[in-house]
Nucleic acid binder design. Structure first.
Lengths: 398, 398
DNA sequence: ATTGGTCTTGTAAACGCTTACATTCTCGGC
DNA sequence: GCCGAGAATGTAAGCGTTTACAAGACCAAT
């Protein structure tokens, strides 16, 4: 291994001088600089990262902790696994930022069996992995749902840490999330206000999922805000295609009039619903509208193409990274939650005419306390949306 | 920051002893061990990775260098971008191995504008990034097509390095690739031997792509080996949906009898072909068969589902990682190329009946010099395949 | 020549760990 | 009680940087 000493002796200077020309810090006479550069090139010297970290007292490395969905067969993609791409996209966002600042990115996947399928309380293997990691990085980016909020907060106290797509209710930890709530509102309003749907069936996500909660609340609020509208039933799914299908089959088996629309908590379940409906010959969107959430890739491919809400995943990574870097620079900074706007993606499963997807960024709706929302929404939000005459409806298109 | 010294003084021992209980190396009396452990937990001590690396003279980090396809709009998946998932999958394979051995994974994406769209000769920005990286890792995994073979070989001489999906012709560098050649042979044989297709049109990949070359050669060999079979034309595409579409339109515009099959060098182009065919009402597979390569996710979703060849991408990552670790342990080891078997995925675009995909691992065909192949293949391979009566044909299914 | 200032360069002390070697305990056998 | 062999522990020398500080070189002004 070539070290500073080798370069120094080859160039006939001290290691301090070599270090200086390497970083352009102190003043170095032109001819010395040239000599040193020559020696560096000649020997093919590359500074040792570990020694630099030790001397500088920073690693210039940030860690990204992802949850791996292990049900997936290696080397086989399927619709379920599309949610996996979430982290791939986050990673690209993070990496872009990292690189601009000449840092490095350390990746760790946590398998589902490690995370116990549910956020780990504390002291478990994930906790240990995180501690171990903390010796190698300046800060950590961690996905939601991997560690229980309490454990997360504990780690955040010991090292710079920001949570990606975290529970927006949780305070005291830096977080960057998509504005699920406003996105779901926009989607519900599109269905209710723009399309005049009145009787909605809700295929909900797991009760433990914070994003499902946000979407659920938003739907309920929009329904409450629009008299005459009602959620005729709810099925609690598990975010999988199969559960969306089962939920729909249950609905159909129960008999009674078909609801106007199926509001699914994610695209996978919406796709499941589409399957179930197609199986019994119910036409979408003529007989019933179906909408999803997330805008996973197959959403644009299914029949009919799915109206959904797109999340700014890559941006999530970028912002989380920015936040982390800020936190590293100033550990005393106030923690905060940052909500990124989502995008309403209108295709044809909602009843809009077929054609290329129409996209509209959802302006964040300021969130009020539950009581206030119900009261105000009837006036403010409902009326506002109606007055604005959504640019996504066929009549206003173009 | 809590250091060994803090723990040592808290436990009333020397730092050497703390280090010993930390790693269970030397003998430590039970009560001391307990005292030290208590101090560690108490202070929340975590060893500093940089200091460890420096002292141990190894980083326990390996780097993965991926090429990013920059044409992609952030946050929007499309068919083209599915090839991007290649690295995501490789990464998972690598990470799995890395973790078993308690190493860390450092990720770097190279954007297309950095890689100049083509393998960089030497001394360019990628070269510099790689050198820089080499100070932070014990070894590097790098994707094919990022750096020109010569530059790659130069780096390989300076540090442990293995190429993923590299040009299988290149020697002197460790490489792990999928057996494109055997996969393409199997696919071509399925079309020609099993389905009796005689007149094939080839939608080829770019001349610069080594994997396209392997597939091209394989096709030609199978054609040569089967008298009466002919490649009626070739269009050189660019691996994109659009180029597949254009190629097919050209073919149609040229008039003349329709070939029996379209042999596309990747799935994206096959999907483009499907579009072009559907646009003029030509039915697949009744009027013409179409096959792709890679088995990207949309291949199973398009109409009809695409018969193609699946690559063991995750395994590629695993094996490359294993190889790198071996190389790090023994820098003098002979370099070698490892070919991983591919899988023939039969859906219905080839003319097989619809239904779930039938998969069959392709046994590697020993590669002979061009002359020998042509001579022997007519007997060995052709006859062999016919005798075996492919288990994928409808008649032999089930 | 001396002085004082600016440039340029060198010296040496960290940084936090591992580990070879030295030292001190402990204890059974005498 | 003393010896010697392990066992347990401590000491200190690295590992390759960065950087504060010291020192030397050079030059203009005195």
């Amino acid at each position: 291994m070539v070290t500073l000493y080798d370069v120094a002796s080859q160039a006939g200077v001290s290691i301090a001088t070599v270090s200086r020309v390497l970083h352009g810090h102190g003043a170095v006479r032109e001819d010395t600089r040239v000599r040193v550069r020559a020696a560096i090139d000649d020997l093919g010297y590359v500074p040792d990262g570990a020694a630099q970290s030790l001397a500088r007292n920073r690693k210039d490395v940030i860690g990204l902790v992802c949850a791996e969905h292990s049900g997936l067969k290696p080397d086989q993609y399927d619709i379920e696994s599309m949610s996996l791409m979430f982290y791939d996209e986050v990673m690209r966002g993070v990496e872009a930022r990292i690189r601009e600042r000449n840092l490095s990115l350390l990746i760790t996947f946590l398998r589902e069996d490690e995370t116990l399928g549910a956020p780990e309380p504390e002291g478990g293997p994930v906790d240990a992995r995180l501690r171990e990691l903390s010796g190698k990085v300046d800060g950590l980016l961690i996905g939601e749902g991997i560690l229980a909020p309490a454990a997360l907060a504990k780690h955040a106290r010991r090292m710079p840490l920001v949570v990606i797509a975290g529970d927006t209710g949780q305070k005291g930890t830096d977080m960057v999330s998509a504005d699920n709530w406003s996105g779901a509102r926009a989607l519900a309003e599109h269905l209710i206000v723009d399309h005049g749907k009145r009787r909605l069936f809700h295929i909900d996500g797991p009760v433990t999922a914070p994003d499902a909660a946000a979407r659920r609340t938003a739907l309920q609020e929009v329904v409450d805000a629009n008299p005459g509208t009602v959620v005729v039933g709810t099925y609690t799914g598990r975010f999988s295609v199969a559960s969306g299908q089962v939920g729909t089959e249950r609905l159909l088996a129960a008999g009674g009039p078909l609801p106007d629309a199926l509001f699914c908590a994610n695209d996978q379940m919406a796709i499941g619903a589409l399957h179930a409906l197609a199986a019994v010959g119910i036409r979408v969107p003529q007989d019933i509208a179906v909408v999803g959430f997330d805008d996973i890739f197959p959403a644009s491919l299914c029949d009919p193409p799915l109206t959904t809400v797109h999340q700014p995943i890559r941006k999530l990574g970028e912002r989380a990274c920015d936040r982390l870097i800020a936190r590293i620079a100033d550990p005393a900074m106030r923690t905060k939650l940052e909500l990124l706007p989502t995008e309403l993606v209108v295709r044809s499963s909602c009843g809009c005419p077929p054609g290329p997807a129409r996209r509209r960024e959802v302006t964040p709706v300021p969130r009020r306390r539950p009581v206030a929302v119900t009261a105000l929404a009837a006036v403010t939000v409902g009326a506002g949306a109606a007055a604005a005459k959504s640019p996504l409806l066929p009549t206003t298109e173009r």
